[in-house]
Design a protein around this nucleic acid. Sequence first.
DNA 1: CCTGTATGTTTACACCGCATACAAGCGCAG
DNA 2: CTGCGCTTGTATGCGGTGTAAACATACAGG
Lengths: 195, 195
Amino acid sequence: MSTSRSEKAYHHGDLRAALVSAALELLEGGGEAALSLRAVARTCGVSAMAPYRHFAGKEDLLEAVAARGFEDLAEALGTADASAAGAEALAAQGAAYVAFACRRPALFRLMFMTPCRKPDRPRAYGILEARAAALAGPAMPAEDLTLAAWSLVHGLAALILDGRIPPEAGGTGAVARRITLHLARLMAGVPEPSA
Amino acid sequence: MSTSRSEKAYHHGDLRAALVSAALELLEGGGEAALSLRAVARTCGVSAMAPYRHFAGKEDLLEAVAARGFEDLAEALGTADASAAGAEALAAQGAAYVAFACRRPALFRLMFMTPCRKPDRPRAYGILEARAAALAGPAMPAEDLTLAAWSLVHGLAALILDGRIPPEAGGTGAVARRITLHLARLMAGVPEPSA
DNA sequence: CCTGTATGTTTACACCGCATACAAGCGCAG
DNA sequence: CTGCGCTTGTATGCGGTGTAAACATACAGG
């Protein structure tokens, strides 16, 4: 087999994917502090400089990891959205968003910590946007609703991750669902008050 | 003068405060990457190990810096709250919160990046809580309203800082005020919709 | 004055990201 | 098959970091 890769080949096979996976593992167990390029290389059984053949630098690797995280997030939001209809669907998305952050805190931090040089929204944004647009009522333009919903769940997730919210509330995700549902209902069914 | 401090005194006078200030300066110009214990010490014209006489380690110093940041934030929220009444006061707080984050992004990140071992809320929380409680209507319990408002502005700030929101919207803070005002009005004046 | 204690300094180590120079394996003309 | 070249991984080294230990200095109270 000309393309077979022996176990101990000098060439790794596909290091790039292995590096991203290793980085993710290190991240999820041990936090961001444990994520050093050298440690990643060590985990893959490879020299410290090897990653530089596949990534421009540490930041580049982290970007790849974050991209993978955004894929996972989009998937989670998609299935959550499909699990219900109307305002409940948006609430489900909100709960899923917070749950994702709680389940993979270090990854979530990484995803939103990078100053994000490329301003393109993650694919997950589209999923939220679609649902929010469908719910937008007279009280608030669709654009503001999308932004408000995103800000709400993102802020909630961030505060939980930073330990700013009592654990019994944050842990279950009940608060996330309740608050998002409140928001969704208010946005959907309510006319602009007097002012 | 027994207490006079010569320019080149061996003892600094009050290093602790100087270190915190220096750390803040380094943080505000140059981002978090520029904040190394050694750089802080250098800025104060002192050896690299000197800070350890006043702080248990880098994390401890950062905690002190964050505490100072929370003081400033509380003050900003307080004056904003006093600048208006009713729902507009909460909107003003929201705008001030986001403005604070935009004005001092690195500090804001630091304040909410530490996993926050001591679960006590910042003093700023009380200011928001009071206003939210005063506004709480039948649509949402006061506790949820407080949490929702905080999450909303915090998430908005975080998303802006991460470059996830178009600059023309985030920069001015208009979005923050608009959205928070929407939230405040909805919470204050609107009965629970049919469901 | 003499001594104890708080405060800074020096030296040292392990780790990090990264630059450069080198070696090992694969693919493809001939 | 042979040999060349390119990709991939290695070895070594530099400047930087956080921090531990041992040392030096200035002030305070007897």
